[in-house]
C-alpha cells in the first residue's frame, strides 16, 4: 500500500496514467538525450563522464544525479527498468542477466546524420514513456536547425582534428556542413566515413576555411605530430578558421544544433555569409 502511494506521488507531477519507467544511462551521449527528454524523477543515475566539465556540456545539470561507471554491477544494484548503453558497451553479453532482473538494455545507434539524431531522440523518448516531450524537443531543434540552413556559402570547408582526422560522406559532420550551405572538402575529394586528410593532399588542395575540432585542448600531443607540423601551421595561419564547440560535438545528438548555431555565428563574424543567394 505504502509503495503504491509513493508511486502515485512520483507519477503525479507528470500527470501520467502509470508511473514512468526508471532509467539509468551509462554513456555521455545517452545522458544528453535523457537530460533533454526524461522526467528528473525517473532518472536514477547518469554516467560519470557527464559530470566531468572537460568533456560534458551538461556537467552542472548532471551533478544533480548519482554517477555510475557503467558496469553491470552498477545496473544490477540500481535496478532500473531501462538501461541506455552505447553500441560498443562491453557488458552487453550480460543483457540476459539484466533482463532477468527486470532491466531492459537499449543500445544507442551511432548517428550518421541529423535525421538520425532526431529519430533516436524521438524513439528513446517513446521508450521511456515521454513520447510527447520527445516530439516537442525534436520539433524545436528541427526548427532551429532549419532557421540556420537557408543560406548558401561557396566556401570549401575542411573539418580537421589535430591527428589529421576528418569527416567524409556518411558522417553527421558532413551532413551538418552541407546543411549549413557549405561544401565539405573531404567529401568532395571522395572521402567517405571518418578518415584522415593527408598532409600532402592539404598542400595540393587547401580549403577556403577550416573547421577545427579539439585543437584548443592540446590533447594527446603524441597523436598530433600532424597537428604540430610546421607546414600545417603555415596553412592554418594563412586560412580563416572556426573552431568546433567541443562539448557539443562528439555525440551527434540534438545538441548538434547548439554547435551549428555557434558555427554560424563564427561564420558571420568572418563575413562568410552570402544572404539572398539561396
Amino acid at each position: 500500500m505504502g509503495l503504491l502511494a509513493i508511486l502515485c506521488l512520483l507519477a503525479l507531477p507528470t500527470q501520467a496514467a502509470e508511473p514512468l519507467p526508471s532509467v539509468v544511462s551509462t554513456d555521455l551521449c545517452a545522458d544528453l538525450i535523457l537530460l533533454q527528454v526524461a522526467d528528473p524523477g525517473q532518472v536514477l543515475s547518469l554516467s560519470r563522464q557527464s559530470q566531468d566539465p572537460r568533456v560534458s556540456p551538461v556537467a552542472e545539470a548532471a551533478r544533480a544525479y548519482p554517477a555510475n561507471r557503467g558496469s553491470v554491477e552498477d545496473l544490477l544494484s540500481l535496478k532500473p527498468d531501462i538501461a541506455l548503453v552505447y553500441l560498443g558497451w562491453t557488458a552487453r553479453r550480460h543483457a540476459d542477466l539484466l533482463a532477468s532482473q527486470g532491466t531492459r538494455v537499449i543500445a544507442l545507434p551511432y548517428p550518421r546524420n541529423w535525421s538520425d539524431a532526431l529519430e533516436t531522440t524521438r524513439r528513446i523518448a517513446v521508450q521511456i514513456g515521454r513520447g510527447e516531450v520527445g516530439k516537442i524537443k525534436t520539433a524545436e531543434a528541427e526548427r532551429r536547425m532549419r532557421a540556420l540552413a537557408g543560406r548558401t556559402r561557396p566556401d570549401r570547408l575542411l573539418y580537421l582534428r589535430p591527428s589529421g582526422g576528418t569527416a567524409g560522406k556518411g558522417t553527421y559532420v558532413d551532413d551538418l556542413i552541407t546543411r549549413l550551405g557549405l561544401r565539405n572538402l573531404a567529401a568532395e575529394q571522395g572521402q567517405t566515413g571518418w578518415g584522415r586528410f593527408p598532409l600532402e593532399r592539404l598542400v595540393r588542395s587547401p580549403p577556403d576555411l577550416f573547421l577545427l575540432g579539439y585543437f584548443d585542448q592540446a590533447r594527446s600531443p603524441a597523436g598530433s605530430a600532424y597537428g604540430r607540423h610546421p607546414l600545417l601551421r603555415a596553412i592554418l595561419d594563412a586560412t580563416p578558421a572556426i573552431s568546433v564547440p567541443t562539448g557539443t560535438w562528439g555525440c551527434g545528438g540534438l545538441e548538434l544544433v547548439d554547435a551549428a548555431e555557434q558555427i554560424v555565428t563564427q561564420l558571420d563574424r568572418l563575413g562568410r555569409a552570402r544572404p539572398g543567394q539561396d
Binding site: 568533456v55 594527446s220 597523436g223
Partner: peptide, 10 residues
C-alpha cells in the same frame, strides 16, 4: 585527459 587513449595507443 584520458579521453584520447586511442591516439597514445597508436
Amino acid at each position: 585527459n584520458p579521453t584520447d587513449a586511442q591516439d597514445i595507443v597508436l
